[in-house]
Amino acid sequence: MLELRDLSVAYGAIRALHGVSLSVPEGSIVTLIGSNGAGKSTTLRAASGLVKVQSGSIHFAGERIDGCAAHQIVARGLAHVPEGRMVFANLTVLENLMMGAYLQRDRAVVRRELDLVYATFPRLQERAEQVAGTLSGGEQQMLAIGRALMSRPRFLMMDEPSLGIAPLLVKTIFEKIVAINRTQGITMLLVEQNANLALEVSSFGYVLETGRIILQDEAAKLRQDPQVRRAYLGG
C-alpha cells in the first residue's frame, strides 16, 4: 500500500537517507527500527510530505505522492502521528480532534468518527473541554493518535508512540494500536525505540542504520536475529 523506492533525503549538505526502499502491504503493521539518528523519522517525514525527497519515489495506494504538499497527502488517507506528539497545546482536546477532521466537511461523518475515537480512548472524552497542554504525556499520545484517526486514514504512520510515556500506559497504547489495525483495518508503519514491543505487534520489520536499510525480515525472525538482539533488543 505504501512503497518507498530508493529514497534519498538530505538536510542541506547532510544526507539523511541513502536509497531507502521499503514496502508496507495493505492491512499489515510494519516496523522500522534503528538507533537515534538512523533516519527513521526522516523516512516518515518524507512520506508525509514534510521534507523534500532528493531522489527516489514514494507511491501510496498506487499513486505517486512524493512532491505533494503535506496537507494534500493527508487528504489521500495517509496520516502521520509525529514524533513528540505535536498536539495543539493551546486548543482543547475536542478542538484538537476537530482539527484532525479539518478536511471532513460532513458533520455526521465527523460525529461518527468522534464517537469511534472516544470509544477507543474514553479518557479523551472525559477531558474533552480541557486544554491539551495540561494532559499527561500518555494522554497527549492518545490525543495525537485520536487526532490522526479523525481524518479517517487508510494508513497511519506512527513515530515513537512510546517515547516519554509511563511504562504502564505504553502497554495500553500498543494494545490500542493493534486494535485499531485489526478492527478498523488501518495499515500501519511504526517507528519505535522499543523494538521488542514494536516487533511483537508487527508482521514485518526493517532495520535502518545511518540512512540505509541493513536488514529486513519477518518480525518474528528479526526478534531471533543475533545482530538485532544485540543492537536493539538488549541482548
Binding site: L91, M99, A148, M150
Partner: peptide, 18 residues
C-alpha cells in the same frame, strides 16, 4: 481554529490537512 492551530505548530497543522 486552523489559525490557532497553525500559530501553535505549523507542522502539525499541515499534518491534519491545513
Amino acid at each position: 481554529m486552523a489559525m490557532r492551530a497553525l500559530s501553535f505548530n505549523p507542522v502539525a497543522a499541515s499534518l491534519v490537512g491545513v
